[in-house]
Write a protein that binds this DNA or RNA. Structure first.
Lengths: 217, 217
DNA sequence: TAGATTGTTAATCGATTAACAATC
DNA sequence: TAGATTGTTAATCGATTAACAATC
């Protein structure tokens, strides 16, 4: 009787969710109450079976044959799954240009992330307030994370410092790390590292471009 | 005799390249001339066969049994493949907090990306100089891209405006788009869209965290 | 030579897509 | 009912991993 709560959801599927969510909200805004998998598939350039499977992975909601799925039900379930409805506190380490930007960026809150403090090793930055968050010395990472019960860390330091910062975060009880340094980080197995890999994205763009330009000759 | 130049390289492999490159540079710095696949695999937590296949996909370089691969040869070939050795010009659209940050971020140049101009629809920003780049009105996107021969566009506008901006870039001859708006963009098939999907990354962090916290009970 | 490492072919694994009966 | 759509089982596809002969 008791369902296995551990719905299997692949990380690929998880990556598609924000796109579904965005489309669904758009539809809801337009007054659409029910939508079918084939319609969503067409809008997002996906396979319709994939959409149905993804929806199934999100929740217990069943679609109605001939009709489709309840738009607001889907939105609710996806936000629940993605954790956009409850906010997590995080700290950011590295107040360079990228880190600076993230402190100023308002978009994260919309996705349930709240940066509560920043750290840097450069004395020049310490004590500063950036977008209302104060910058503390890196030595205090572990202590502060423990004290504030922080479980998410954002790393925006240069690659040479990334592993050290990572270790400090882990020591502070951080369980999930968002890493913008183009470095592989070693962590205990219960800690998740999500690499943002801007370099890899740029490589893809550059490679595509090179191929396209070659075609012109 | 003539080799098929179109080496098959998967996009997964392409994503691993920056990590190889970073490690290889580190090794070179330490005076290491030759490295084996198993060593690299161990350092990056990968399978050794995968590393060998990735190296093979990069270039014609052969490793030497019992020894390994030439570190500097690999670096050279990877930078060539990733396009980090030649710079591409790009424009950025959307000078909000994230866009602002990117204009200030020095890291991109290291990867061969040079942002030459920025656009925004908000009159408040137009005419401004941000990190030495002037902000132009969005209406001029197509014209300017054509005139300057720009082929890469970076989209950092809110989701409602992303598709419109995308269309303007495409009209301006842009062939590769780096999209930070959490929206699916429709483009002609010769144009590549690389989605940066910060929302999806956050979802992964949040989901992992939720699971870990649950374990505590 | 012995042993580590290479490169390649075959087996495994997992995700996507196709096929199809069930439903409204 | 007829037809679109659902949910699921089976087939396909592609990437990772294992197995192994070749090489220095």
């Amino acid at each position: 009787m008791s369902e296995n709560n551990e719905k299997h959801i692949t990380i690929q599927a998880l990556h598609r969710m924000p796109y579904y969510l965005q489309k669904l909200k758009e539809l809801k805004n337009d007054g659409v109450d029910v939508v079918s998998a084939p319609k969503i598939a067409q809008m997002l350039n996906l396979n319709e079976v994939q959409v149905r499977k993804d929806f199934a992975a999100v929740s217990e909601i069943k679609g109605k044959p001939k009709a489709g799925f309840s738009v607001s039900e889907l939105i609710r379930q996806m936000e629940e799954l993605l954790g956009f409805n409850n906010t997590d506190d995080a700290v950011l380490v590295g107040v360079g240009s990228l880190g600076h930007a993230f402190l100023a960026y308002k978009g994260f809150e919309e996705y349930g992330l709240n940066i509560v403090a920043a750290f840097d090793s450069n004395p020049e930055f310490i004590g500063m307030e950036i977008s209302g968050k104060s910058v503390l010395p890196s030595e205090r990472i572990s202590e502060m994370c423990l004290r504030m019960g922080i479980h998410i860390g954002i790393i925006t330091v240069p690659e040479e410092q990334a592993q050290k910062v990572c270790d400090q975060l882990v020591a502070g009880g951080v369980l999930a790390i968002w890493n913008f340094a183009p470095v592989h980080l070693s962590v205990p197995e219960n800690v998740l590292v999500k690499n943002e890999n801007l370099a890899a994205s740029l490589a893809m763009l550059s490679k595509h471009l090179k191929e396209k330009m070659k075609e012109k000759f």
